[in-house]
Amino acid sequence: MQFELINVDKIYQASEENKIFGAKNINLKISEGDFMALVGPSGSGKTTILNLIAGLILPSQGSLKHGGSDITSFSLEERTKHRLDYMGFIFQDYQLLPILTAFENIEFPLQLKGFTKKEIDERVHWALKQVGLENMGHRFPKQLSGGQQQRVSIARAIAGRPQLILADEPTANLDSKTAQEIIELFKKLNQEFKLTFIFSTHDQRLIDQVKTVMYVKDGQISETRTHHA
């Protein structure tokens, strides 16, 4: 199922005269297996577009669609459930719960989805294997390195096999070597499992690896480039 943003504007209105476009006339289609990046300087609107896709904020104009459903018509709770059912998230600062082990952090969205214990065990082990942390499920985040924490965060995002994974500056807090490993991991997940990724990033190494790069400037997608493998 496609995710689609059609003529989307997001206006932050400080006053009647003072309107700021967080996103302007965004038209975007995300299909299964896409591996794309939103690129632009800070404040250009990349994160706003990610938030719009996730349904975390609603557009001032235009529509957000997933399959046949108009997400803008969903209530807050319905949008939360929609994210849980169809999306995974990876954050710049990992956002793991410090009180839960790696295993339990990955387990968290699966519990919210209502999976059985057996399904959860299978999926968490699968996700840990994909990110190369099979033996570290029992560790708490503070017992893991930054790269390992980001791997747990990726495992949490993919364990529910979502239709779309949104990653906000996923390599920004990592050293060069670790960042490269994480990028390779994203590529592997995209190629092997057809997982769909959309990144917001500054990282040229990541930009070089994605199939589609969308340059964002002043809230608008100013240019789209497609890399051919």
């Binding site: 996730a54 975390l56 807050l76 709770e77 939360t80 459930k81 994210r83 995974g88 719960l97 919210l112």
Partner: peptide, 10 residues
């Protein structure tokens, strides 16, 4: 973060 990854306010 919990809300973003799908935990309802409830």
């Amino acid at each position: 973060c919990l809300n973003i990854i799908g935990a309802k306010t409830t």
